[in-house]
Amino acid sequence: MCLGVPGKIIAIYEEEGLKMGRIDFGGVVRESCLDFTPEAQVGDYALIHVGFAISLINEDEAAKTLAILREIVDLDDEIGGHPQEDTVP
């Protein structure tokens, strides 16, 4: 439900009492509301849904997840598990 896209906060400002920010989605910039992420700082990554940051990306958790997954892959290589061929429909 709900397309959420991670973007980097490149500016923070206030507009009519709302905490707003400019979010860089890898080259595309859009204004978004940061009122739900009061702790947000420039440089943080936020998950944006319909023009609102609903969560800040926890970069440590992301790195940890990738490290764990990487281990799974390496482990798999050691055991010699062979990914099966995909079937073409």
């Binding site: 896209v5 890898g26 080259g27 595309v28 859009r30 944006i48």
Partner: peptide, 13 residues
């Protein structure tokens, strides 16, 4: 696909 085009597409679905 240029990164900015990809990004705009991600953003807008």
């Amino acid at each position: 696909v240029r990164p900015a085009v990809q990004a705009a597409c991600e953003m807008l679905g």
